[in-house]
Structure formats: C-alpha cells, structure tokens
Amino acid sequence: MDIIVIKDLNFCYKEKKIFSHLDLNIKKGKWYTLVGENGCGKTTLVKILCGIIETTFIYVNGLEVINKNLFEIRKKMSVVFENPNTNLVCETVREELAFPIKNNGFFDIDDRIDKFLKMFDIESLADELVNNLSLKQKQLVAIVAALIIEPEIVIFDEAFTYLDDERKRIFSLIKSLKMTVINVTHEPNDLLFGDYISVLANGKIAINDEMRKVLDNEKIISSFGIKVPFIVDLSYKLKYYNLIDKVYIDYKDLVADLWK
C-alpha cells in the first residue's frame, strides 16, 4: 500500500522550474533513501510533503496535503531538518521531548520520554539545557523528539550530518520502530541501509527502486552523479575485470569471495 502519492507535480520557484511532471509513490513501512545533486529540490520536496509549501495532488495517508488536512497529516508525520538549532524550541531536553507528545494529545508523557531516553542512550541529557548541547547532541535530541510520537512517516532531511559515528546504531533503532522513512542524504553509506533508493534529477524522480537493483546497475546510478559507497565502487571495478560477478555491499563477503 502506498502511504505517500505524488502525481504529476509541477512546481516553480521565482521563475525557476523545480519539478516537472514528478511522480512518486512511497510504500508503507519501507525505508527510502532519497538522493540528488545540490540544488535539485530535495528540501523543497520535503517541504511540499509536510505542507510547508502548498501545492496539489500530493497525498499522505490518503489525505491531500492542503491546509484543511494539515493537522491530521502532521499528527502522523514528523520531519527533521538539517540544522539542529532550528528543530529545537524548548529550554530543556525533557521539555523538548514532551512538546510533541503534548501537541499530539498523548497523556503518557513521562513514560514515553523515559522509554526513548533509554532507547537512544541519552538519559544523561534529560535535564540539560538545549542551548548547552553540542550540535551532535542537539541533532540527536531533535531526532528523538521526532520519533517520540511514533509517527507513521518520518522524513529526515540531512538530519544525521553530526552523527556520523552513530549512524548505524541510530538507523537500527529507527528501523525497529517500523515507520515509513524517507532519508534525504548525501552520505554514500546511507544507500546501503534502506529498502529503496530514489534519485531526484532534472525535476523528476529518475529512479525509485529496490536498493539492490539500483546499486547493481552502475551505469544508471553514476549517470546521476551520485556518490556510491566505497564497497560498491570497488565492486564495480572488480566486476569490470571479471574478478567478481556481482556487486557487494559488505566488504567481508567481498573478501571471502575474492580470496576463497
């Protein structure tokens, strides 16, 4: 079932055409990695999906993303943008986590906060002032605040830039919450994590397919200037010289195959 449907989106900004007949279908419960060159419109697309920019023929959970439906849509959708300073609005971390819970009408505030503080291993930050946190800590708190209402959809717009050393751990935790995820990213290794890869190019979704199918096709992915993970890049080169016959996403498997 498709939880997000975009049909024939055309959008201009200050006379510049951003999207042209863009279609996109996002399946419920799947993890999508959305990539594209700088300036192609990734953040604009995110803003359209959550109704910050209003346009037509965008459906989230069956509701059209227009003003009268935004409250209903946003109860089940969270968005985390790149700059952690713009994501956080409260004085302390505990207040920051309570804010979305209260906004969505949940009453189990303390239980939820305790559960997510423990899950993400940030119990020590609970009573800290948000302004005193490092950028890395702020970004993590913003992510937890987005997840604490357990939305059906969560969109991350380059939201892990300060969390490089913890990405895998955090991704695994998010995956365990079984939401529909759209991760907008420039980080090549993020391509390995999700179910689907979507490439935004020339105003359209040029690719929207299963991760393995996309990465197996070197010509397609490289034609859009997308950075691929090291192990995939190495696999392409080794495959070219017939040293292996498939693309690997784990270097231990690659090594085992090369030196049997």
């Binding site: 060159e37 700088n38 830039t161 420039h186 200037g225 997308i226 950075k227």
Partner: peptide
Amino acid sequence: SMGIDASGE
C-alpha cells in the same frame, strides 16, 4: 565537505 554532492566535493 558537509552536505556537498559528488561533483561539489
């Protein structure tokens, strides 16, 4: 290099 695409890098 934060937030920069392949050709940008």
